[in-house]
């Protein structure tokens, strides 16, 4: 469709704030981050160029390696579980259930609370001497064992449990918005054809909701890469460095450890990884048929 000059100007004017923000804030701040990673900045930014030394230090750092490893495990599990759980919750709510507002709020409330305290509550619940294991044993299940959080090999899965608890509600809301955007005609047509309901969901609705899934997946993924509060309040990266994550590495080195050089090197590495994943995807989408 050819656009008139007028429309084109309007569209451009709508994009102006976004362009401005991208150029001034993001491009500027990102360049600053990359530059800092090439210096030996400690507490305050300085301009002493040291080449790639910070990156060498980073790659030799056990904690960074563990963090990267952890975020992959966490990311895969969290995104897939939250999408599945969130979608199922949305479908359940979409069945015209009683007290819909209340049920939806129950699923959503974890999202409203900051992890500063809810992380602590999860820590208590999963702690073997205090939480679920303790309660089960006091009920007479002597052999009950649920001590993932104190074992280095499994602590990261505890973050997933709390992460899914927090994020599923939001996924549910996005899915519900998607479901309610589905044309009523489609349901009518399916009814006329006598299709079972689950088949309508699997064969018709899910494929139609690609955009909702994509939106939820991207939002979840940004949360994964930025994962910080939960790790701090629930395990503080422990036991040892077993549940450390990259954003926490960046934050700890940026402020508490006064090592801006290393922190920005870690952040730049994260940035490059994200570009390496996102760019091919966007390119593929653009090739596939532009915007629509």
């Amino acid at each position: 469709m050819r656009l008139s000059l007028n429309s084109r100007l309007s569209a451009f004017s709508a994009l102006l704030p976004a362009l401005l923000v991208m150029l001034v804030v993001y491009v500027g701040a990102t360049s600053w981050t990359v530059w800092m990673s090439l210096t030996n900045s400690r507490m305050l930014p300085n301009n002493n160029f040291v080449g790639l030394r910070q990156y060498e230090m980073l790659l030799g750092n056990d904690r960074w390696i563990t963090s990267v490893h952890n975020i992959v495990i966490y990311g895969v599990l969290l995104v897939s579980l939250a999408l599945v759980v969130g979608f199922l919750l949305a479908v359940a709510i979409d069945q015209r259930v009683r007290a819909e507002d209340t049920i939806r709020s129950i699923y959503l409330y974890p999202y409203s609370m900051s992890f500063i305290v809810t992380g602590l509550v999860w820590q208590w619940l999963l702690n073997p001497t205090l939480g679920i294991q303790h309660v089960l044993r006091s009920w007479g299940f002597e052999g009950a064992t649920f001590d993932w959080i104190v074992r280095p090999e499994t602590a990261i899965y505890c973050l997933v449990i709390a992460g899914v608890w927090q994020a599923s509600g939001l996924v549910m809301a996005i899915m519900l918005a998607g479901l309610r955007g589905v044309d009523e005609e489609i349901w009518k047509a399916a009814r006329v054809d006598g299709l079972p309901k689950w088949r309508v969901y699997v064969s018709i609705i899910v494929p139609m909701m690609g955009a909702s899934f994509a939106t939820a997946a991207v939002l979840l993924s940004t949360g994964v890469v930025r994962l910080y509060d939960l790790s701090v309040s629930m395990t503080n990266g422990g036991p040892g460095i077993a549940s450390e994550v990259p954003a926490k590495f960046v934050m700890d080195h940026l402020f508490e450890r006064a090592n801006i050089g290393l922190a920005t090197a870690a952040a730049t590495t994260m940035l490059i990884t994200v570009i390496a994943v996102v760019a091919p995807y966007l390119y593929w989408r653009a090739r596939k048929g532009g915007m629509r």
Binding site: G238, P239, G240, I241, A242, E256, R257, A258
Partner: peptide, 19 residues
């Protein structure tokens, strides 16, 4: 010692304690 060194030692100690 500067915070960066204290922090790096902390990681080493924590790993030693927990593994």
């Amino acid at each position: 010692a500067p915070p960066a060194l204290i922090g790096a030692l902390q990681d080493a100690i924590s790993q030693y304690w927990n593994t």
